[in-house]
Amino acid sequence: MTALYVLDVPENTGVAKVAAEDPEVTVGRVGPYFEITADGSIVVDRRATGCRHAVWYSCVAGIAGGRIVQHDKDALRVEPA
């Protein structure tokens, strides 16, 4: 299982919202963090999040059980380790 942690602040809510649109992805919470989990890949479309440049490139708080294979102007993609 792969987990992507995103701090719950106003700028980041779009990331969790867009991630949750994938039926294979579950969005829960650990304290003030969104815990975005999936058995397979987690993919977040940047344009759908509405995040500006600086927010997009600093929205990831932690990654468990996986690694970032793409984090660019198009998408954030986390693959299982």
């Binding site: 942690y5 650990v30 304290g31 963090y33 990654i63 970032i68």
Partner: peptide, 20 residues
């Protein structure tokens, strides 16, 4: 950076719920 995000995920799991 990848190692930092992995270590930080562990710290989030350890501490974030208690902090809240």
């Amino acid at each position: 950076f990848g190692k930092l995000l992995a270590r930080k995920a562990e710290l989030i799991v350890e501490r974030a719920a208690d902090w809240e």
